[in-house]
């Protein structure tokens, strides 16, 4: 069964348009369309898609689109799926951005954002605890997130360097553990 590029594009366009709340909210919808409805990918392969998309850098939903598109139709498929996935976002955000500056001075809009900002802080703080659980934070490694946050907040270190340091640290630590084990 061949999948047309148009079908890949429209499927991921629809997924991009109807999921609010980021990549993780998109997982069940992608699974429904890609695994159950069109049977493009088997259930087992979908687990691989998730694992690879999560461990690669970048935007999770876009990674999934690229991986599935590539699997089905090569590079053209990857481009069609990824473009379809982000196009609704780009169009909607551009419309809002173009209007936003003229609304910003409006008193009511300003008051709405005074209420929104503290809620945004809570919504960013909340995943700290759920991600901490899946990252298996214990008393032995809790210094890593604390040190990372302290360096960023108190010393203005860019998160880019924190990530690079964590990758290098992970490689070095892996080597040390290999030595100790052998």
């Amino acid at each position: 069964m061949t999948v047309t590029l148009g079908r890949l594009f429209t499927t991921f366009f629809k997924l991009g348009l109807f999921t609010i709340g980021g990549g993780y909210a998109m997982i069940p919808l992608i699974e429904r369309d890609v695994v159950h409805r069109y049977k493009w990918v088997s259930g087992d392969d979908f687990v691989d898609v998730l694992a690879v998309s999560q461990s690669a850098p970048g935007i999770f939903a876009v990674n999934m689109a690229i991986f599935i598109g590539y699997k089905l139709r090569g590079i053209k498929g990857a481009v069609a799926a990824a473009l379809g996935n982000v196009l609704p976002s780009v169009i909607i955000i551009l419309c809002i951005a173009l209007l936003f500056n003229s609304f910003r001075e409006n008193k009511i809009v300003n008051n709405i954002f005074l209420g929104l900002r503290p809620a945004v802080v809570a919504l960013i703080a909340a995943p700290v605890f759920s991600v901490a659980k899946s990252a298996r934070i214990t008393y032995t490694n809790v210094w890593i997130p604390i040190l990372a946050a302290a360096l960023i907040v108190a010393f203005g270190v860019s998160p880019v360097y924190i990530i690079l340091a964590a990758i290098i640290g992970g490689i070095v630590w892996g080597r040390i553990r290999n030595r100790l084990n052998s």
């Binding site: 700290v128 298996r136 997130p145 990372a148 960023i152 924190i162 990530i163 340091a165």
Partner: peptide
Amino acid sequence: RVFVVLRPAVVGLIA
């Protein structure tokens, strides 16, 4: 092994 260090660091980033 890399993710053993990287995941906790991402927790710090979000915080």
